[in-house]
């Protein structure tokens, strides 16, 4: 065991997968000689050379499209969008090409593409560097969407994503990059589509992922009197509804917390499915708590007013537990 933070864990995962399979390569802006603007790909260029750790022009459409073709030809590209906000520049390559080529061809091909996208809010980077855009990719048939909350999960999930034969959107919250956790020396994988129950409880289910996990953990610490079950989804598509429903069956109360705003969100979808599949389990109206619905303002006090907080989680949780605002 050694302590690694998420960026280190991601770096090790990519190294391990490139060592294991010579079809795996990384290609994106700054990922080669520089080692990635966040250092996630350091050491690859030295070890594997330029073709397997290729620096690209600032051409998101170009290099993500390239990944689609490379995957069609049997390679397993791992690409990176430096800030997820930039993904708008390659939406055709992702949505119309990567997500659809297998069906359009009558299932003649598979598209093993992993796209790492760094994202997050709260770091004063304003409207075009602060968005959580997972819902877009969840709503398009064809992608898996993975959002780890800690270094351990990030490593195991990324390795599974790279080995998966469908396009995977792997979202990394930059505010989680530097929390060290114990990582075993031996290899491990975490299957896609399996949630993690972080804490068991009987009175309220909180479903979250990504940065929502530490935010909710802080809130739960402030409520030692409450019996709360905390679920980290880890994978958004496919969604582990079995774990969610089993928990709601036990607690009767559901709060979903995420950094994306609540409207048309992952939380909305979870509520749809809980209402359809577990309506009788519910003892109170399920709630979604997310960042405010706004483009992100720059100034610190304005941005802070937008973000989810442990206090906000506590307020929603107490309401669901007591029925009192």
């Amino acid at each position: 065991m050694k302590k690694l933070h998420m960026l280190d864990a991601i770096n090790v995962a990519i190294h391990e997968e490139m060592e294991r399979d010579d079809k795996v390569f990384v290609i994106a802006e700054d990922v080669g000689e520089y080692g990635g603007v966040w250092n996630a790909t350091r050491g690859l260029y030295e070890k594997y050379g330029a073709l397997r750790s290729m620096d690209t022009p600032i051409s998101e459409a170009g290099f993500t499209g390239l990944c689609v073709g490379a995957a069609m030809a049997g390679l397993r590209p791992v690409t990176e969008i430096m800030y997820m906000d930039f993904i708008t520049a390659c939406m055709d390559q992702l949505v119309n090409q990567a997500a659809k080529a297998d069906l359009m061809s009558g299932w003649q091909m598979e598209l093993p593409i992993t796209l790492r996208a760094q994202y997050g809010s709260g770091s004063r980077e304003a409207a075009q560097h602060s968005q959580s855009l997972e819902s877009w990719f969840c709503s398009v048939p064809g992608f898996k969407v993975i959002i780890p909350s800690n270094a351990y999960d990030a490593k195991g999930l990324l390795k599974s994503a790279i080995r998966d034969n469908t396009p995977c959107i792997f979202m990394e919250n930059r505010n989680l990059y530097y929390d060290p956790v114990e990582i075993p020396d031996e290899e491990y994988l975490i299957p896609l589509g399996k949630a993690s129950v972080k804490q068991e409880g009987n009175d309220l289910t909180i479903v979250t992922y990504g940065i929502g996990v530490p935010v909710c953990e802080k809130a739960i610490k402030k409520m030692p009197d409450a019996s709360i079950e905390l679920i980290d989804l880890r994978t958004i598509v496919p969604l582990d509804m079995e774990t969610v429903l089993n928990s709601v069956k036990k607690t009767g109360r559901l709060l979903i917390v995420h950094e994306a705003s609540a409207g048309f969100s992952v939380g909305s979808e979870i509520i749809r499915r809980v209402v359809e599949q577990g309506f009788d389990y519910l003892d109170a109206e399920p709630l979604v708590y997310g960042n405010l619905r706004t483009a992100m303002p720059f100034s610190a006090n304005l941005e802070d007013s937008v973000l989810i907080t442990p206090e906000g989680v506590e307020e929603k949780a107490r309401y669901l537990l007591t029925g009192v605002c």
Binding site: I27, A61, G62, T64, G65, L66, C67, V68, G69, A70, A71, M72, A73, G74, L75, P77, D92, Q93, N96, Q97, A101, M104, S105, G106, Q108, M109
Partner: peptide
């Protein structure tokens, strides 16, 4: 599509294949 003959698809998006084609060339 006919991948056995290297025919990697038409495209309903005008220009949609241009970046993708660089990918098979990169793979080669």
């Amino acid at each position: 599509f006919d991948t056995k003959l290297g025919f990697m698809g038409g495209n309903g998006i005008v220009g949609g294949g241009v970046t993708v084609a660089t990918g098979t060339a990169y793979a080669s």
